[in-house]
Simulated assay, not measured.
Amino acid sequence: MTATTTTAGQVPGKRAPSASPRVRALRRFGRNRMAVAGAVVLGVVVLVTLLAPLIARHPPNAVDLDAVRQGPSWEHWFGTDTSGRDVFARTLYAGRVSLLVGLIAALAAITVGTLLGAVSGLFGGWADNVIMRAADIVMSFPTVVVILVLAGIVGPSMTVLITAIGLTQWPVAGRVVRGVTLSLRDREYIQASEAAGATPWWLIRKHIVPAALPPVTVTGTLAVAQAIMLETTASFLGLGVRPPQASWGNMLNDAQNLTLIQTMPWLWIPPGIAIVVTVLAVNFVGDGLRDAVNPAGRGGDR
């Protein structure tokens, strides 16, 4: 006698195979409306900045002396600055710089933090003490101060920004990876691998990094938003991206005069809105990833 099937095509008494952790995480992320909205907005921002040469009607550094300090018009959608440069074009091209600095700096911080956190958790002993004390020291220094020191030594540049952010933001990822490593170090398969002659670097590459990837991805996403804000702050203070190359930070620097703020709001509103929208979108995506990877704080997997 053959078994009857249900309407879903399943044999009665048998449970359907459960979805993989990755699929469940994607489903939880998809149910988070703010995270999905943030991902859509962030995708639009990235796409618009990448297509800047096709969208902008003027080069970002082209000077038009006949259109100095003009308000928004059909020719210059966001108006022009004090040098006659198109604000719309500069806002688009500035997004490239700010996003690039944020992405590379966050990637550098995550890479250094993952390596040092894995070494700290796996080796323990003096290595753990040295790395964790170094993390405490690094976290005690404000990133802007480090940027100020490096800029004073070698001069302001994008490289200085990325280096300073990477050197000061790695402890966050390092602590996360160290915690994951400590939870894995006494597992049977790790001990079996060590007994079979596996090197620590093989364990880090094959077991620790894959296990730490979900929380590190969340940390990295939030680090991008932090790096964008740091780049904006440093460039606004004249310590980051140098003119004539545009970034959202130095565009705000051009409009820091009180008279310009009152009489030419089109100089600071576009980059200001771009910063707020981008950082909020990245944070919403990071929050969604955090809840998708670790749903315990939201009542488990529903």
Rank of each mutant, 00 (worst) to 15 (best):
G9M: 09
Q10M: 12
V11M: 09
R15F: 10
A19G: 08
S20P: 05
S20F: 09
P21K: 12
V23F: 07
R24W: 05
L26Y: 11
L26Q: 13
R28G: 03
R28M: 12
F29P: 01
G30M: 12
R31H: 15
R33T: 15
M34F: 13
M34E: 13
A37L: 15
V44C: 09
V45W: 04
V48M: 14
T49M: 10
L54A: 14
P59A: 15
A62I: 07
A62H: 12
D66N: 12
D66R: 13
P72D: 07
S73A: 08
S73F: 08
H76A: 04
H76V: 05
H76D: 07
G79H: 01
S83F: 12
D86G: 04
V87G: 00
R90E: 07
T91M: 05
T91G: 00
V97A: 03
V97M: 10
I104F: 09
A106Y: 01
L107E: 06
A109P: 02
I110D: 07
T111M: 06
V112G: 01
G113S: 02
L115S: 05
G117F: 08
A118S: 15
V119S: 00
V119Q: 02
F123D: 03
G124F: 10
G124N: 11
G125P: 00
I131A: 00
M132Y: 06
M132H: 06
R133V: 06
A134F: 12
A134C: 07
A135M: 10
I137V: 15
I137H: 01
P142Y: 14
T143H: 00
I147T: 04
L148Q: 06
I153M: 11
I153N: 01
V154G: 04
S157L: 09
T159W: 11
V160M: 07
V160D: 01
T163M: 12
G166Y: 00
L167A: 15
A173F: 05
G174A: 10
V177H: 03
V180M: 07
T181F: 03
L182R: 15
S183Q: 15
R187V: 10
R187M: 10
Y189V: 06
A192C: 07
S193G: 12
A195H: 04
L203M: 13
R205G: 13
K206L: 07
K206R: 15
H207S: 08
I208T: 04
A211E: 12
P215H: 13
V216L: 08
V216G: 05
T217E: 06
V218P: 00
V224A: 00
A225K: 02
Q226A: 15
Q226D: 13
I228H: 03
L230K: 00
E231V: 01
T233D: 07
T233K: 05
A234V: 11
S235P: 06
L237E: 09
G238I: 14
L239R: 01
G240M: 04
V241M: 08
R242S: 14
P243I: 09
P243K: 10
P243C: 08
Q245M: 12
S247P: 06
W248Q: 05
M251K: 01
M251P: 01
N253V: 05
A255F: 06
A255H: 03
Q256W: 08
Q256N: 12
Q256Y: 11
N257R: 14
L260K: 08
P265M: 09
P265F: 08
W266Q: 05
G272M: 09
A281R: 03
N283M: 10
N283Q: 14
N283F: 06
G286P: 03
L289D: 00
V293E: 05
